[in-house]
Deep mutational scan, measured.
Amino acid sequence: KPRTPFTTAQLLALERKFRQKQYLSIAERAEFSSSLSLTETQVKIWFQNRRAKAKR
Rank of each mutant, 00 (worst) to 15 (best):
N49K: 02
F18D: 00
F47E: 03
A54P: 00
Q48G: 04
F32P: 01
I26F: 10
P5C: 11
K44W: 02
L24D: 01
L36R: 05
R19M: 14
R50Y: 05
K53L: 11
K17G: 03
F47D: 01
F18T: 02
S25C: 05
L14K: 01
I45L: 12
Q20A: 07
E31T: 04
F32W: 05
R19G: 14
K44P: 04
R56P: 13
R51A: 06
K17T: 06
W46I: 00
R16C: 14
L12S: 13
I45C: 07
F18L: 06
I26A: 12
S37H: 13
A30R: 09
R3G: 15
Q48K: 02
Q10P: 04
S34R: 09
A27I: 06
R19C: 15
A54Y: 13
A27H: 11
L24V: 02
Q42K: 03
T7W: 02
Y23S: 13
K44L: 11
L12R: 15
A30P: 06
F18G: 02
Q48A: 11
A27N: 15
P2D: 11
Q48S: 10
S35A: 13
Q48R: 03
L24W: 06
F47I: 06
R50T: 06
I45N: 12
R51Q: 10
E28L: 01
L38C: 09
V43H: 05
E28A: 03
F47P: 00
I26W: 08
F47M: 04
F6S: 01
A9Y: 14
A9K: 12
T41C: 11
K55I: 12
A9L: 10
K53V: 10
L14I: 04
K55A: 13
F18M: 00
A9M: 13
A54D: 12
N49T: 08
T8C: 10
R29Q: 15
S35N: 02
F18K: 06
E15H: 05
K53N: 15
F47A: 02
I26P: 11
S25P: 10
V43I: 10
T7E: 03
E40M: 00
E15D: 05
N49Q: 08
E31G: 07
Q22T: 08
L24G: 01
Q48H: 12
R19W: 06
T7G: 06
T4H: 13
T41D: 15
K53S: 11
Q22I: 03
F18P: 00
S35M: 11
K21C: 09
S37W: 04
R3H: 15
R16M: 14
K55L: 09
T4G: 07
R56A: 12
A52H: 07
P5L: 12
A27E: 13
I45S: 12
P2E: 15
E28V: 00
S37V: 02
T4N: 06
R50W: 01
T8I: 11
A27Q: 15
R56L: 05
L11R: 04
R50E: 15
E40W: 08
L36I: 08
S25W: 03
T41Y: 07
S33D: 08
T41K: 10
S34E: 10
L12E: 12
A54G: 09
L36C: 02
A30Y: 08
P2W: 02
E28R: 00
T39M: 02
V43E: 07
L24E: 00
S33L: 04
A9V: 14
E40K: 01
W46D: 00
R3V: 14
V43Q: 01
K55E: 15
Q42H: 00
T8K: 09
K53Q: 15
K55H: 06
A27L: 10
T4I: 11
S25Y: 00
K21M: 07
R3E: 15
Q42D: 13
W46F: 10
Y23L: 06
T8M: 12
T7P: 05
K44Y: 08
E28S: 04
A30M: 11
R50K: 09
Q48M: 10
R56I: 15
K55Q: 13
T8H: 11
R3M: 13
E15C: 00
T41V: 10
L11Y: 09
R3K: 15
P2M: 12
I26R: 07
Y23V: 14
Q48F: 05
K55G: 09
E28Y: 00
N49D: 08
Q10D: 06
Q22S: 14
E40I: 02
L38N: 03
R29H: 12
K17I: 15
I26G: 12
W46K: 05
S25T: 12
K17Y: 09
A54M: 10
F18C: 03
E15I: 01
A27P: 08
T8F: 12
L12V: 11
R19N: 13
A52K: 05
F18Y: 09
Q20H: 11
R16P: 01
S34M: 04
T8V: 12
Q20D: 12
S34P: 06
A13M: 13
K21Y: 07
K21G: 07
Q20L: 06
A30E: 14
A52T: 12
F32C: 14
L24A: 03
I26K: 04
A27G: 05
E31Q: 06
T39N: 08
L38I: 05
R16E: 15
L11S: 02
K21D: 11
F32K: 03
P2S: 10
Q42E: 14
I26N: 06
R29M: 15
A27F: 13
P5K: 03
S34V: 10
T4C: 04
F6T: 06
R16G: 14
T7D: 07
R3T: 14
S35R: 13
L38H: 01
L24M: 08
S25N: 08
V43C: 07
L12Y: 03
A9I: 11
A30I: 11
T7Y: 03
Q10F: 00
F47H: 02
T39Q: 02
K1V: 08
L11M: 13
I45T: 14
